[in-house]
Design a binder for these strands. Structure first.
Length: 205
DNA sequence: CGGTTTTGACCCGCGC
DNA sequence: GCGCGGGTCAAAACCG
């Protein structure tokens, strides 16, 4: 599947055993939210509360509890919403880039998506007792940023927001592939994933 | 020793 | 104009 305006155009989600998730532990895409509108919301789309105005597309996966269930994927695209929310044409100047926010159920705060991130800030935000962490892609010339924050309502969920588009390959792309072939099993987790993710990057044109 | 993390300060936009 | 909240900077500490 290809999401429009996905900051990682080659970043695909598949429920196929040929793929492996870089996300450790008890991991579950409870919701995947694409956002192109910054107005009104604080950068996040809460699936329960927010109207679909700012959700471009969403994906819900279930079957996480035991980590061995089948992944059920639903995908809905609201292209009309996406079109009308195409901002940034103000002066034709700065477009901060695409933003993707998704909420995952995970024990760990920072999920390894294959890129190298450097932490550059931490803030406590309103209506959330947990801190929000700010990361930049540590690759030279890459300005992609990432915000990671525990859900204030349910600390079992982690809200991750990507901003920008990577202009380079995933540094650990080969590493992940190697993990697949080398029967990575030390934690008794990876082999049980119902949702496996593949990251495939093609060189920028 | 170089890269990363920590953390307080600073900056900026927005609402009142 | 002021205060608040969110985002970023940068120096020091930390770590492999």
């Amino acid at each position: 599947m290809n999401f429009p305006e996905n900051p990682n155009p080659n970043f695909t989600f598949l429920s196929d055993d040929n793929f492996i998730s870089p996300f450790m532990d008890n991991f579950d895409f409870s919701s995947l939210m694409f956002e192109v509108d910054e107005g009104g919301n604080t950068g996040l789309v809460q699936e329960e509360t927010s109207p679909p105005t700012s959700i471009v597309s969403s994906e819900t996966l279930t079957g996480e509890s035991s980590g061995s269930g089948r992944a059920i994927t639903t995908l809905s695209k609201k292209e009309s919403t996406f079109d009308c929310k195409n901002r940034g044409s103000k002066d034709g100047e700065k477009d901060p880039g695409h933003r993707v926010a998704f909420r995952t159920r995970s024990k760990i705060d920072v999920m390894d998506d294959g890129y190298k991130w450097r932490k550059y800030g931490k803030k406590s935000v309103k209506n959330n007792t947990n801190k929000r962490n700010y990361y930049k892609c540590s690759s030279e010339g890459c300005t992609v940023k990432k915000r990671v924050q525990r859900d204030g309502k349910d600390a079992a969920y982690v809200i991750t927001t990507y901003e920008g588009v990577h202009n380079h390959e995933i540094p650990s792309h080969v590493y992940y592939n190697d993990m697949v072939s080398s029967n990575y099993d030390h934690d008794n987790n990876w082999n049980q994933h119902s949702l496996l993710q593949s990251i495939h990057i093609s060189p920028p044109s």
